[in-house]
Amino acid sequence: MFFLFQGCGFGCQLHHIVYCLIFAYATERTLILNSKGWRYNTKGWDYVFYPISDSCTSAYDDKVVQWPVLYDAKVVSLPFIDSISQKPKFLPLAIPKDLAPRIVRFNGDPSSWWIGQMLKYILKPRVAMQKAINETIAKMNFKTPIVGVHIRRTDKVGTEAAFHHIHEYMAHVKDYYDQLELTRTVDARRVYLATDDANVLEDARKKYPEYTFLGDASIAKTAATHRRYTPLSLTGLLVDLHMLAMCDYIVCTFSSQVGRVAYEMMWTNRVDASNSFFSLDDIYYFGGQNAHDRVAVMSNTGGKSQDISFEAGDRIGIAGNHWNGYGRGTNKRTNVNGLIPWYKTADHLVLYPFPEYKQVPQYSDTRQKNL
C-alpha cells in the first residue's frame, strides 16, 4: 500500500494516514508513506515519528497501481479519500466484526474507538520530539479535574466553520463543573485552552478570573497561518493534542480536524470517551466516511415541529444534530427528510469482516490483551 502526503493541515494528514492504514489492514498489505518534502519537515515523516513499519519502507521498483484495482495487485496507490471511487465498505465508520461483541460492552462510540487505535499506532514520536513535548508539558503543572477547550479561529472561520465566542465554550465548561461539584469537591476549575489565536488565552483569563487557565501563548503564535508548517509548530500542535486528550472533558468544534483528532486520542487513555466531549457545531464524523445512519429504537408520528414519521427499526441517514433534542435526517424506507427526535434513535453500527490475522500468533495475542 502506497500513500503520498497531501498538502493539507496536520489533522487532515493524520486522518488520511488512518484511512490508508485501515485500507492496508483490511486488504492485508503494509502501508508505506512517501513523505519526502513533507510540509512540516522536509526530511519526512520518519524524521519526526517512528515509521509505520520497521521492515517495509519502500516499494522499490515494483509497479504501483492506482486504486481501484484487483485485490491481487502487489502495490496500490490510494487517492485523496474524498475522491476515491468504488469506496470499500470497510472504511469508517465500520469496525471489525470479530471485535464488536467485546467493544460494545464498554464502549458508547465503537467507530471512534477503532480510529483512536489507528492513531495510537501512527503517532509514535521519536526521542527528540517526545523530549520536546515532555519539556513543554512539564512547565504547565497539569492536574485534574480539567476541561480542555479547543478554539479554531484563523483559516477555517468564515469558510468551513462559523465563529464561536469564548462564552459559548465556557458555558459548557461551567455545566461540566457544576455537575461535577454535585458529587465531589473541586479545588479549582481548570481549563486547558488550545487555540491558533494568541489573543484568546489572555482574553479568557480576563473574562473568567474564577477559572484557572493552562495554555501556552507561544504555541498559539506558531499555529498562525504564516508559521503553521514548521517543526516548531508541529511540536506545539502535538502538545495541544496530547493535553486535550488527557483532559477529563473537551469542548470544541468537530468541524475542526484537530478537535476530532483530540477526541479520537481520548480513546487511547480511558475505557469510554463517548460522554467526554461537547461539540459546538458538527456531530463526530470521519472525512470521506461511508454513510452515517441511525436506527430508530421506537416509532415516531410526524407532523409536530417538522419532524418526520418512522417506525422502530427504520434506518435514517443523518445530516446533522441540532443539539436541541432534534437532528435532521432522511428515513431510508420512506425517503422523507425532516427533523427527528434524537433520543428515539441510536447509531447504526456497521460491522465488517476484517482479516483476523490468526496466522500471526504474536499479533493475535496482543490484540486479545488490548481488549
Score class of each variant (00 low, 15 high):
Gln306Leu: 10
Phe213Glu: 09
Val65Glu: 15
Asp98Cys: 08
Arg260Glu: 02
Ala273Phe: 15
Lys344His: 01
Ser55His: 07
Phe310Ala: 05
His292Trp: 09
Ala24Tyr: 10
Val157Pro: 04
Ser85Lys: 15
Ser274Ala: 15
Gly313Gln: 00
Pro361Val: 11
Val104Gln: 12
Leu99Pro: 00
Met140Arg: 14
Asp281Ala: 00
Ala223Tyr: 07
Asn321Cys: 03
Tyr326His: 10
Thr301Ala: 14
His242Phe: 10
Pro355Leu: 06
Lys358Val: 00
Leu244Met: 03
Glu135Lys: 15
Gly302His: 09
Trp342Ala: 01
Ala319Gly: 08
Arg367Phe: 00
Ser55Phe: 08
Ala161Phe: 11
Phe2Tyr: 15
Gly338His: 07
Arg29Pro: 00
Gln66Met: 11
Lys304Ala: 13
Gln289Cys: 09
Cys56Ala: 10
Asn107Asp: 07
Met243His: 14
Phe106Arg: 05
Ala291Glu: 10
Asp281Val: 01
Thr334Pro: 05
Ile115Glu: 02
Thr235Ser: 03
Leu244Ser: 03
Ala161His: 11
Asp72Gln: 12
Thr222Arg: 14
His16Lys: 14
Phe277Leu: 04
Tyr285Ile: 08
Gly287Trp: 12
Val271Gly: 13
Lys174Pro: 08
Cys12Asn: 14
Met170Glu: 03
Trp113Val: 07
Arg190Tyr: 08
Lys332Ser: 09
Val69Arg: 02
Asp365Glu: 15
Ala224His: 03
Gln179Pro: 04
Trp113Pro: 04
Ile81Ala: 15
Gly317Gln: 03
His16Met: 04
Ile81Phe: 12
Ile122Met: 00
Phe163Arg: 06
Tyr177Pro: 11
Asp98Arg: 01
Gly236Ile: 13
Lys74His: 14
Gln179Arg: 14
Pro79Asn: 08
Ala224Leu: 06
Asn300Ser: 02
Val149Gly: 04
Trp267Met: 01
Arg126Asp: 00
Phe142Pro: 03
His292Arg: 08
Gly325Met: 00
His15Lys: 13
His226Asp: 05
Leu214Asp: 02
Pro361Arg: 01
Asn335Glu: 06
Arg152Lys: 12
Ile84Cys: 09
Leu33Phe: 01
Gly327Cys: 07
His226Arg: 03
Val297Tyr: 06
Tyr357Glu: 01
Gln257Ile: 00
Phe278Thr: 07
Lys174Glu: 11
Phe142Ala: 07
Pro68Phe: 06
Tyr249Glu: 05
Ala26Trp: 11
Gln257Val: 04
Gln306Phe: 14
Ala132Trp: 09
Leu214Ser: 10
Arg315Pro: 07
Val271Gln: 12
Lys74Met: 13
